[in-house]
Computed example of a mutant assay.
Amino acid sequence: ANPGEFTLRAFLNGRIDLTQAESVLEIVNSQTEKSLEISLRKLKGEFSEKINKIREDIFDLLTNIEAKIDFPEEEDVSSYSIDIKRRVEKIKEEVERIIEKAGKGKILYEGVKASIVGRANVGKSSILNRLLKEERAIVTEIPGTTRDILQEVINIKGIPVKIIDTAGIRKPKSKIEKMGVEKAIEWMEKSEMNLLVLDGSQRLKKDDEILLEKIKEKAYLIIINKIDLPLKLKVDYLKRNFPEERIVFVSAKTGKGIDKLEDAIYRLICEGYGKIESSEFYINVREEELLKKIRDNLKNITENFDNLSIEVTAEFLKESLKNIDFITGRNFSQEILNNIFSKFCIGK
C-alpha cells in the first residue's frame, strides 16, 4: 500500500472530504488528549459543516446577483445593494470567527515553544525532568552539563508545550560550550516564551541580571529554584521590577511548587492567546491560507462596495467559492493530493 492509500480511496469515493482526510494524519500526530479530541471532531465533519454552510450562503447570494445581472429592472437597486452588502458582511464575519477560533485550536494541536534558560547549574534540567515527570535530561552538580539543546513536549492542561532545555549561560570554557551558549540565546529569540531559572540559594550574578533584561522581549516567567535551601536571592528586588504573577518559587529537588509552575505556564499561554476551550478546532496551513483568501475577497467587496460594479462583486464571490471547493476537495489537483498524502504512513 502507498502512503495514505486507504484514506485517499475514501476521499476519491466521496465518503469523506479533503478536510476529513487530512484530519486522519492530524489524529496520528496528536500530542495530547485535547489535540486528539479536536482532530476527531474534524474527522466527524464539524469543520466541513461550517465551511459548507458558508459555501451555501455565498452560492445563494451569487445566484441572486446573477439573476439581477440578467434582469436588472425587476427590483429597486438601492435596497438590493444594501441587502448584498449586509449579507457579504455577515459571511465575512463568520469566516473571521472560524480563523480566530482555529487560531486557538492551533495552540491545542501544535502547542507553543518555551525555552528554559539561566546560568549553569541553577537547576534547569532538574526542572525539566520534574515537568516531564521522568528523568530525560542528565543532571549533575558539575556546571555546564547541558551542552546540547534538549527538546521535550510536556502536557500543560491539554496544551503541548515544547520545552527546550538550553545550555547554561556563562563564559564558555571550550568551543563546544561556546556553541551551546550561542544556541541557547538563539532559542530564546525563537521561542514564544522563556522560562528563566534563578538559583534562590545565591545572590544575583551579572549573568542573571543580563538574562532578566533579555527575557522582557518575550512572554516570560522567572523561576526561583532551590527553595529547599536558605534563600539568599533578593526577592524584593525582583518584585519591584517584575509583576509578582510572573515569579514562581520551586524546588526541583523536592518537587515543591511544580504544580504552581504548570499553572503559571498555562496562564501565560492564555494571556497571549486568550482563554482556550476544548471546543476550538484546528486548521492546517493549506486550509488557513485558503480561508484568508476567502476573507480578503469578501473584505474587498465590503470595503469597496460603492465603487464596485455588480459584475465585479459576482467575480469576487466566484473566487471565494473556488477557494472553498479547494478546502473541501470539490476541486483538487493531483499535485495537491500527492503533497497531502505523501505525509501519511504506509497504508492508513
Rank of each mutant, 00 (worst) to 15 (best):
A10W: 00
A10K: 05
L12D: 05
R15V: 10
I16V: 14
I16W: 04
A21V: 13
S23K: 04
V28Q: 12
Q31K: 15
T32F: 11
L36D: 00
L36W: 02
L40W: 03
K42Y: 05
F47G: 00
E49M: 03
I51M: 05
K53N: 09
K53D: 06
E56K: 02
L61D: 05
T63Y: 14
I65W: 06
E66P: 08
K68Y: 09
K68F: 10
K68M: 10
I69W: 08
F71E: 10
E73M: 07
E74P: 02
S78L: 13
S79M: 08
K85S: 10
R86S: 15
R86T: 14
R87G: 11
K90S: 14
K92R: 10
K92Y: 08
E94K: 01
E94P: 01
Y109D: 08
V112R: 04
K113A: 10
S115Q: 07
S125R: 01
R130M: 11
L131F: 06
L132V: 14
L132R: 09
I138L: 15
T140P: 09
I142S: 02
I149G: 05
L150Q: 03
Q151C: 03
V153Q: 07
K157D: 14
I159W: 02
P160R: 04
V161F: 07
I163K: 00
I164P: 15
A167L: 04
I169S: 01
P172G: 12
P172R: 11
K173L: 08
K173F: 10
K175I: 08
E177W: 10
K178H: 08
G180T: 11
G180E: 10
A184N: 12
W187H: 10
E189D: 11
S191D: 13
N194Y: 01
V197L: 07
G200T: 05
S201I: 11
D207E: 15
E217G: 09
A219P: 15
I222C: 09
I223A: 04
N225P: 15
K226P: 15
L229D: 05
L238Y: 06
K239C: 06
E244H: 04
V248N: 06
F249A: 02
V250S: 08
S251Y: 00
I258T: 09
D259E: 15
D259T: 15
L261I: 02
I265N: 00
L268F: 01
E271C: 08
E277T: 13
S278C: 12
E280Q: 12
E280W: 02
N284P: 09
V285G: 03
V285M: 07
R286P: 14
K293W: 09
I294K: 06
D296Y: 10
D296I: 09
N307L: 10
N307Y: 07
S309M: 04
I310A: 10
V312T: 15
T313N: 01
A314F: 04
S320W: 05
L321N: 00
N323P: 06
D325Q: 00
D325G: 00
F326A: 01
F326N: 03
G329A: 05
N331R: 00
L337W: 09
F341T: 02
F341C: 02
C345A: 14
